[in-house]
Design a binder for these strands. Sequence first.
DNA 1: TGACCATGAAAAAACCCACCCTCAAAAGCA
DNA 2: TGCTTTTGAGGGTGGGTTTTTTCATGGTCA
Lengths: 345, 345
Amino acid sequence: MKKPTLKSIAKALGVSVSTVSKALKNSPEISPRTRERILEYCRLHQYEPNRMALGLRHRRTGIIGVIVPQTGHYFFSRVITGIQKVAEAAGYRVLIAHSNNESRAEREHLQLLANGYADGVLLTLAKETLQKGDFRHFLPWIQRGFPLVFFDRYPEKLPVSAVIIDDTEAGRRATEHLLRMGKRRLALISTPVYLLVGYRRELGFRKALNDNGLLVDENRILRIDERRPLGEQIRGLFRQTPPPDGIFAVNEQYAAIALNLAHETGMKIPAELAVIGFSDGIIARHTYPRLSTVVQHGFRMGQTAAELLLAQIEADELPPKPQIKIIDTGLVVRGSTSAYPVERL
Amino acid sequence: MKKPTLKSIAKALGVSVSTVSKALKNSPEISPRTRERILEYCRLHQYEPNRMALGLRHRRTGIIGVIVPQTGHYFFSRVITGIQKVAEAAGYRVLIAHSNNESRAEREHLQLLANGYADGVLLTLAKETLQKGDFRHFLPWIQRGFPLVFFDRYPEKLPVSAVIIDDTEAGRRATEHLLRMGKRRLALISTPVYLLVGYRRELGFRKALNDNGLLVDENRILRIDERRPLGEQIRGLFRQTPPPDGIFAVNEQYAAIALNLAHETGMKIPAELAVIGFSDGIIARHTYPRLSTVVQHGFRMGQTAAELLLAQIEADELPPKPQIKIIDTGLVVRGSTSAYPVERL
DNA sequence: TGACCATGAAAAAACCCACCCTCAAAAGCA
DNA sequence: TGCTTTTGAGGGTGGGTTTTTTCATGGTCA
């Protein structure tokens, strides 16, 4: 009834534990007759070795842990898919844990995974960790050389490997795209400053305007407070006179909300208002018109991060030097910024 | 440099392993002087017990495994959040594995989690498993009474616990909603039949029409082939004369695509065409107008499934009888079926 | 025919790490 | 000296792998 173990099998067949173990490994030390008897019994009872015992013995589990804030986000799910592809090709399995953007959960899951459950961990920082700026829980693992690679959000001051995008440059290019359409009254919908990615995209926005000899109108820079209703905050932009003729939102959700508010006020998209978002995801493909966005290539980010991690795991001697890899971003032009978008439904 | 173990600590301090173990547990058997020396050393070297050894010793890991096809889906991420809430309140951690809708990955992840990594597993069937109808890989675990609870998609012929929704009834109510608006030329966008949830929603659609004395027009029933472009398949519905005046799509993606195609053909929503989707998610809230949908209450489904699982895990004697729990569905009426939707942005 | 060694098969033991129970040695006290 | 109390060492356990040992058999050769 219960799960068979080497011991229970050995007892049932009147042989020793090591004999069973060797028979299962087709060791030549075991006579064909004994081996067949053991294999038969194991097939019948569906024996499988206990993974904890294997992990303890080999100090290797064949598992890669991933810690993400949550998985509802399309971007993270693309990263995970990329990780999985590389990991599985190398014979590893992937287990995922959610930090829920909380430092405590992040720390506890890292402890769990790093204390034997996984051979290496890939992670992106929880918002709370980023906000508090307290990265001490990573130090022991870094010091011991435990394989650890960050992606997207990472602790810049620690000597760690990370795979990121150039948010500033991507923000600049998205803004440049709006400018090239002839839009001049550009608004930005951003996040609080402590989320560095949002801040960097804002820097890119400012740079693009500066490069083109334009002034930044601080009234058109909106920093969303996630605890309050998003629609009401964004609506403020449309009450300005004159209203913006171009909006760059640092994620696709803000962009989609802006787009729909524009419909409500009767603005023509993209003629009267062009909207571009960030992080090409599931929302951007289903708005009307569909959203132009900066694409982050989550899949490639995941692949690259997994490759860095596998190199760390399989390094015989000292761990490789920490390195930061930057994944190129792209621009997908759809109906929200172009009357003649390339993509079809 | 390496991770400290009880043994390495004992050696470094010239005491025995058991002394270290007891000191860490504040056992009164250890003198304050010795204990303080040991605790000091452990703090300095950030000692943490190896989880594999703990799991092996106690035959209990405090971990719940979850296997889902992928996590990009909003519905699954809500289920996981619900699971997590219940699990964490009971002192368990949650680890997630992706089956990618493949039977092989589903089987292997189940083996991994059930062979020591987790105390119990929550899962929803991979599409491939459902298509092939081969559920043999679950039998050993069911026979042994390993804690296992399915949610959403489950093997109906096996004696297992599951948490599901009444898809037929939900489909009937969604269709009824369209009928009550006065729509009569109803179309259905569904999935292949082997995905039972799609099929059951179709049954509900048919039932609603029958109940209202209406005939089902088979030309208005579209079964999507996921391997071909979705837009082209759905566009067929709009080429019919007269076109449908109401569409029930069995998921939010199909509904959103239909909505946007309707915009392209210039139809007025909801006056000329009402659209209702299924599985209230991230897409439905960002279309224009926003999508009315059947809500599946993924969070509650996750909570209920986790509660069933915990009851199994913590049952002292024989495992409780398999039971099927049905989660109520609801209807969220938004702009795609009502000129006066209740929800605000 | 008896001593010796090679061979093969399987058992025993060590190891991975932490926990926990048992028990011995040392110290303290009368 | 004898008794109790303190202190900490030792060994078994969980489940598997791997190295070492044991033991019986068979063959070789003097």
